[in-house]
Amino acid sequence: MAEKPSQEYVFVSYKLPLPYRWAAGKYLSKLYKEMRDHKKLVTNRCPQCRQLIWPPEMVCGRCKVRAGDEWVELSDKGKVVGYTYMVVPLWDPHKGMRVPEEHPYATILLDDGMYVVSRLEEKDKSKLKVGMRVQAVWKEEGRGHGLDEDILYFRTIG
């Protein structure tokens, strides 16, 4: 069989920078500030339906009324309702790089009924279970650099 004539092909690689900036606004900033300064999760309550809004927002998504400033402190304990083991970690858009090591990533239902998505401390896959009780472990140094990073991960509790 005749050999197929081969040609060198050039591939053009480049990185397209996508700079952007967003403001967290008054209500989300209040949550981030409490997380940074007091290691607390807070949210606001709707004056009409009396339900907690999550994440804190200006308008209640159910009643479409102005939510106001009735702030409530939330428990940082909850249970795992679903998880995945990230072998190729997600891209972190605020750092421009991937999270360095593999880790379990879970949706956690807090005791006050809010869903948060965070890393888990437990890296043994056989010990990961839906329904297990977890509690937030807060970063000691350098909090306040953004978003949910003030919580290192959630630790399994009894």
Binding site: V10, V12, W22, A24, K26, H94, G96
Partner: peptide
Amino acid sequence: TERFLFDGKVDIPHKYSAGKVGSRFLI
């Protein structure tokens, strides 16, 4: 202001083939 501003730092990696004709031109 008690308001947080966040900067995104995303670089989208791209790679495309210059193709048969484009490759010869570049080579």
